[in-house]
Design a protein around this nucleic acid. Structure first.
Lengths: 344, 344
DNA sequence: GGAAACTAGGAAAACGATTGCCGCCACGCT
DNA sequence: AGCGTGGCGGCAATCGTTTTCCTAGTTTCC
């Protein structure tokens, strides 16, 4: 086993075992009728040569490559990673390998990658990435199934797996109501961003169901800590009282948290705080740690991969599939020593 | 171009163009001697059928797959991503596709992936990921070149591309010295982590060159903000004065920053702060924004990919290659309105 | 006008693996 | 002794492309 040996072919194995290539193939794949002794001889030869069947040659027959492509539309980021990992996980279990393509939001690059993937005869394609809204389909009439994960395709007939952001926002409000907060403010990302819109609308709607409304209109800005800090200035300058802030992201929440503390408001005693994304770096780094909404991106990636596998096997699931988000409670909404309930 | 068409083969193209497959191949690849009119006819037929040559079949011939495998040893994380992107970038330019494999630090999974990649006849393999120290080689006598990126192989003969962390630490100290700080503390990650060791040792060494030493022995802990905050408690409790803290990571630096401010020390006036990693989320989120050491991971990934391409083309670069880090200056080491130098 | 020199394109052999079909051999049965 | 049968394995086609070799037809030049 020296350095840089040539790959052994099945012909080498057959020769070493003293059989024909056909027989060698059958022996290794458990096909045909062969004596156990023959099979063993072939297997030993294969091991001795560290033979690994050439997947390309094999797929020439089967028509399957056991390979899928994954295209990230924007640059690989904090949101794509978990999706990507979940998908890689689910596909790996199905013995499939993943081609990674970084589209960088450039349609030219993207089309180039689609071509490349098709020429490599991938069995399917997963498209992921973050965008302000649904994206145009990556192609029409493609010869392989496509699943959009995290980001949705603009064509409602395409299979898209997305988080139920509205549901997540409702859970955030539910939680704040459950701990007795009713004067809730909302600080979130840019107004033109679909996520900001959807989450804000869902929060307003959920409050309306209880006959309530936001303490003041939603504050749209950026997704950053900086904006969270600035927003606190606006909140405090306004005349409205508030006992909770629901934030569109954990970064915003952390900014809000820091600024509130700097302004002498205690979290969560005076103001409870809920973020969005459940990004550990932010939720754990904040003081106190932040309650947040988790979109379960890894599960989403896994689910997208499973749908893709199903589609490859002839059972597509067209349409948009919303996956539930869930609430993760931390100290930003739980008073350290809650007052005891009055004895019944 | 209906939904889910079959892939066209070169035989289809040849038939449509009224030539033999051999001729079609030549026409599409610019080989042989053909009339321009014939080439055009074939190209048109190919376009009409959206023909893309089957890469698997093609590589059967050429022996090359124009594909490389990328294995992350630990889970895909904040450090692997930029490396991965840089590599993907450099390889994409060379028309190569990337197989992504998430090893999760599990040697079994890793070996499984190596086998899979070899059976797919990748032209080379890049190994990346974070570890506390150098990792055992992924295999010996593999039939394809391997390059280790960010993490080094324990075998010094293997090609490893790593950041020059010691150099980075020296630059951090240089900078602090340049702004006149001499009583420097060092807060960093776990003592058993190679990066923590190397950076601390380099800092000590650089100070020694100026006849100085750390204000107190390095404080080893975790890589988290929490540890940064705790460490400030230790720093303040100690009897030693300090006017700067060099931190082993940006997260630690941020924790230190927050705790110092809470304790009434001004950054950078009373204490200057330098982090490590130049992770925008931390450096920009902190108040004030943090000066930090950038390991240029994307460049590192790119460089690793280039070395791999060279190795594939028969020009390997064995050994360990250290890539320079650089300093990024922000407000945590620059007084907003620096005193004017006395007029010459 | 005939041979040499091109030119354009076809036929077929690879590449590596799988698989259906077929042949050969050793039995067993009549 | 002859035939049928079943167990083992070999042969060859096949997948899609590339590439080498070769042939038929057209020039060119003497």
């Amino acid at each position: 086993m020296g350095k840089l040996e040539r790959h052994a072919t099945i012909a080498d194995v057959a020769a070493l075992a003293g059989v024909s290539v056909g027989t060698a193939s059958k022996a290794l794949n458990g096909r045909g009728s062969l004596r156990e002794e023959t099979r063993k001889r072939v297997r030993d030869a294969a091991r001795q040569l560290s033979f690994e069947a050439n997947a390309g040659a094999r797929s020439l027959h089967s028509g399957r490559t056991y390979t899928v492509g994954m295209i990230t539309t924007d640059t690989i980021g904090r949101f794509s990673i978990p999706v990507l990992m979940g998908a890689e996980d689910a596909l790996g279990a199905g013995e499939m390998s993943v081609f990674l393509c970084d589209g960088r939001g450039d349609p030219i690059r993207e089309q180039y990658y689609v071509k490349t993937l098709l020429s490599r005869r991938v069995d399917g394609i997963i498209v992921t990435g973050r965008r302000t809204e649904a994206r145009p389909p990556i192609g029409v009439g493609l010869p392989v199934p496509v699943v959009y994960a995290f980001i949705a395709s603009a064509d409602p007939a395409d299979c898209s797996v997305v988080p139920d952001e509205a549901g997540g926002a409702r859970k955030a409000i539910d939680h704040l109501l459950a701990i007795g907060r009713t004067r809730i403010a909302h600080v979130t990302g840019p107004e033109h961003h679909n996520s900001a819109q959807v989450r804000a609308a869902a929060a307003v709607e959920r409050l309306a169901e209880e006959g309530l409304s936001l303490a003041m209109p939603p504050l749209f800005g950026g997704w950053s800590e900086m904006w969270g800090r600035q927003a606190v200035g606006l909140l405090l300058a306004g005349q409205a009282e508030f006992d909770a802030v629901f934030c569109g992201s954990d970064q915003i929440a952390r900014g809000v948290c820091d600024a509130l503390r700097a302004a002498g408001r205690r979290v969560p005693e005076d103001v409870a705080l809920v973020g969005f994304d459940n990004w550990d770096v932010m939720t754990e780094g904040a003081q106190p740690p932040l309650t947040s909404i988790d979109m379960n991106l890894e599960g989403l990636g896994r689910s997208a991969a499973e749908k893709l596998l199903a589609a490859i096997n002839g059972a597509p699931s067209p349409g948009r599939h919303a996956m539930p988000c869930h609430l993760v409670v931390r100290e930003s909404t739980t008073v350290p020593f809650p007052p005891l309930a009055p004895a019944g």
